[in-house]
Write a protein that binds this DNA or RNA. Structure first.
Length: 259
DNA sequence: ATGGTTGGAAGCCAA
């Protein structure tokens, strides 16, 4: 079962890319972030054989899921703050090719820049709410995989120049500590099972020729509960779509899970 | 090189 995560930076601007990628890659599930608008063209994806669900807001954020098999939405917002209106979380189940429904979570974790503002405070508070939700799943013995744009650079080797990111919310010690606290629930970062080296990225800025110079960062991740970690078969970052014409600034990360 | 580019919105903000 192939499951991918991809920050598409506007579903309106990237609809054709998403359709092409679903077909080229034969994905069972795709989770996307940054829809950037209220409109979601569900019928265009249904026409190529995918069920969809989307959580949208005007202009910003937004997450959506695509699956070959029916989707049951469990939660369309992160618990813990009723006043939070930002569309950044969808938790769902789908069976894929197997018999048992699989619990999946798709997140667009707050960017948090600039540091020293309420945006950074919101990021850390959102991460603590996320930790409590994942702990709840763990305490209820519900296996899960969570993927998305985490907006976290976990280690120095996950960026081309650590010094260039030292004042950025994506690499602050508090941000990385909050990410570690998620992993310390007993989760496994899928990509690092198979890839130990530096220089593998999932995002390249549009500016200053970052893609051409391979000045990237690795901020899109999958974390697996122990039951799913036992079933993982592979995890890769697929750089191909970043090289397409008018691309997203992110590229997909894919996991494969056995029956 | 404290810039640069993209997208959605509206005549700037977020990334």
């Amino acid at each position: 079962m192939k499951i991918a995560s991809w920050n598409v930076n506007s579903i309106k601007a990237r609809k054709d890319h998403v359709i092409k990628y679903l077909q080229d890659t034969d994905l069972d599930v795709l989770m996307v972030q940054e829809l950037k608008g209220l409109d979601f063209p569900a019928e265009d994806f249904e026409a190529i054989g995918y069920k969809t669900a989307a959580v949208t807001q005007k202009a910003y954020n937004g997450v959506a899921i695509f699956s070959k098999t029916p989707i049951t939405v469990i939660l369309d917002k992160l618990p813990g703050d009723e006043s939070d209106e930002q569309a950044r979380y969808i938790e769902f189940e789908t069976t894929g090719p197997y018999e048992t429904p699989l619990r999946l979570i798709n997140i667009y974790l707050p960017n948090g820049n600039p540091i020293g503002t309420e945006k950074f405070t919101y990021k850390l508070a959102w991460m603590e709410r996320l930790r409590l939700r994942l702990k709840e799943l763990k305490d209820n013995n519900i296996p899960f995989s969570i993927g998305g744009d985490f907006n976290i650079i976990p280690q120095d080797k996950d960026c081309y120049d650590p010094n260039a990111w030292k004042d950025d919310a994506l690499k602050q010690p508090e941000s990385i500590a909050a990410y570690r606290s998620l992993i310390n629930l007993g989760l496994t970062e899928a990509f690092r099972i198979y890839n130990k080296s530096s220089g593998q990225y999932s995002f390249w800025d549009y500016q200053a020729g970052a893609w051409q110079k391979d000045n990237g960062i690795r901020i899109d991740h999958f974390l697996l509960s122990p039951e799913i970690a036992d079933r993982i078969q592979n995890c890769v970052i697929d750089k191909t779509p970043r090289g397409w014409d008018r691309p997203s600034d992110h590229t997909p990360i894919i996991i494969e899970i056995a029956a």
